[in-house]
Simulated scan of single mutants.
Amino acid sequence: MPHSARGQLPDPRSVVIGPLDLAARVDDALAVQAVAFGLTDEEIGVRRHIVLRHMAGPGASALGATTEEGRLVGFVYGMPNDDTQWWSTIVRPYLAREGNEGWLSGSFVITELHVHPAFQHRGIGRGLITALTDTAAEPRSLLSALDTDSPARTLYHGLGYHDLARRVQFPSAVQPYVVMGAVLPLARW
């Protein structure tokens, strides 16, 4: 997203967080994720099918951050953990090694959270994740993030997430991930 004519970033106050029909706007969401996370066209194609499958599952929900013009600039989605899903089967041994396997039960998993770079560092990601987890019936939340010092990890720590397992290697990922967990509701700063 380009800077405005005055050279300033877009005003985040013009962004509204609300319900998102992610299945209907999957391409808009993946365009945000591609810019925020650096995805290739091939990765976008794979993720499109994954998002659509997730959103058809029980308890899946999504929120979006849109501008006054209706442009999607951020989104989050998640669902109650299902021990049979791919993510759970990958992270289970890492969590078990750390004595944290019990976190898989009774948790709401944040599957994706992305904000367009022009709108980052303005509280939109925090607003998306807290609003989504506030609706969860589960008493805690899980997520995975790149296992690096990053603004995302700083955000998650500030919301009350803590590291449950580090150096988690997903089959197609080059970089290791960390699995993080938080008791709900998330902390407010």
Rank of each mutant, 00 (worst) to 15 (best):
M79A: 15
I90A: 04
V91Y: 03
R188I: 06
Q175M: 12
G78E: 09
L143V: 08
E112A: 15
V26C: 13
R167H: 09
A187L: 09
M180C: 06
Y177T: 08
V109I: 13
D82A: 14
L184E: 02
W103Y: 08
N81K: 08
V51P: 02
Q8A: 00
G59K: 00
P185C: 05
L113T: 10
R71L: 14
P139N: 00
R126Y: 10
G106Q: 12
P80E: 06
M180V: 11
F108T: 11
D21V: 13
L9Y: 00
S107R: 05
D11H: 02
A36S: 14
A36V: 15
T40F: 01
T40W: 00
N81Y: 03
F108E: 12
P185F: 00
T40E: 00
R92G: 06
G7L: 03
V183P: 07
S172K: 14
H49W: 12
A165M: 05
P80I: 13
A62T: 13
G7P: 00
E138F: 05
I129F: 05
D41F: 00
M79K: 15
G70Q: 03
W189Y: 13
V91N: 02
L9H: 03
Y177E: 10
R97T: 13
S88N: 02
G123S: 11
M79S: 15
I17L: 03
I17D: 04
T154D: 12
I17A: 04
P151A: 15
G127T: 12
P117H: 11
P117T: 11
N81P: 07
E42R: 13
V109L: 06
A173S: 08
D82Q: 11
W103H: 07
W87K: 00
T89A: 05
H3W: 06
A23W: 12
H114I: 08
R153M: 06
R188V: 07
